[in-house]
Design a protein around this nucleic acid. Sequence first.
DNA 1: GTTAGTGAGTGTATTTTTAGAACTGAAGTC
DNA 2: GACTTCAGTTCTAAAAATACACTCACTAAC
Lengths: 163, 163
Amino acid sequence: MQWSQLDAEACSLARTLAIMGDRWTLLILRDCFLRIRRFDDFQARLGIGRPILADRLQKLVAAGILAKVPYQERPVRYEYRLTPKGLDLYPVIISLVHFGDQHLAGPEGRPVLHRHLACGNLFDPVLVCSACGEPVGPRDIVVEPGPGARKRSPVPSEDASES
Amino acid sequence: MQWSQLDAEACSLARTLAIMGDRWTLLILRDCFLRIRRFDDFQARLGIGRPILADRLQKLVAAGILAKVPYQERPVRYEYRLTPKGLDLYPVIISLVHFGDQHLAGPEGRPVLHRHLACGNLFDPVLVCSACGEPVGPRDIVVEPGPGARKRSPVPSEDASES
DNA sequence: GTTAGTGAGTGTATTTTTAGAACTGAAGTC
DNA sequence: GACTTCAGTTCTAAAAATACACTCACTAAC
């Protein structure tokens, strides 16, 4: 399988990874959620090479995750803002951060804490079922083919013919 | 910034990405959650090159996300199983899949659906606050330095010294 | 007791990415 | 007119990922 044909896979994970599966994209997105918006700010914070940054920003714009909007006219300068689609990536970022918090924090503890404005408490993200509101774990779920399924679905059944 | 020093960053996202930030690792993990466990099964399903697969599995074992356990003795053969730490990556996988479901599904619809065994319904994952149980979005949270914070925290304040 | 077959990997050559610096270009500032 | 800022682009060299064929250990068959 080639990287470029990942998005043709009938797998939502593969399609998502086709957009954000490289080293830098998620780091750029992290900064987007921290309200970094300008080219040079990304570059300075991340220490990323300019050509790579330009390429990644362009791809994120093409994917509809960021929007390039002018913030001044005379020399036209653009900044990059999360679109509603981009904002939907928040659970991904938070889940990733939470895993790092749980398992990868050094002896000093977590680098950052998250406070929920609505209730005022420090919190951890919890994944719950939209139907019943209970937390869901890896063994609480069954995967079923959906309308967009193709033969090579993530369900391991392709060896059925030789069993 | 070099890829290799990502895990030294005082950022949980960067540390997590240092383990799983490449093209293949998350795809391998997806298959792990679908109970794929053997070298050749991964290889056949993913179409990944054997050297890359060997490398990634080794790294995941080193990171404590997978465990290599023998499943037969005579020629000692190993399979790769998720550790408890690995199981904690479930929210990451599910969030990524859900983003793909929402925004990247083709006109035919979602490739797979998820059913919650506990309540029996098809569902979407929702991220809620562990303290109050309410859903959290990108603008409902403030980030505060934690005990493991260093000067280069994700909060944009590093230019203070040179301004 | 050679020969073929399987599962799990290595080694090497090739392609891709990436890093890093310098350059462009438009506009404002001194 | 020289200098600076921002947002890139264009180079080259170096690092990394990748594909492909190959090895190794063992089993089963002949």
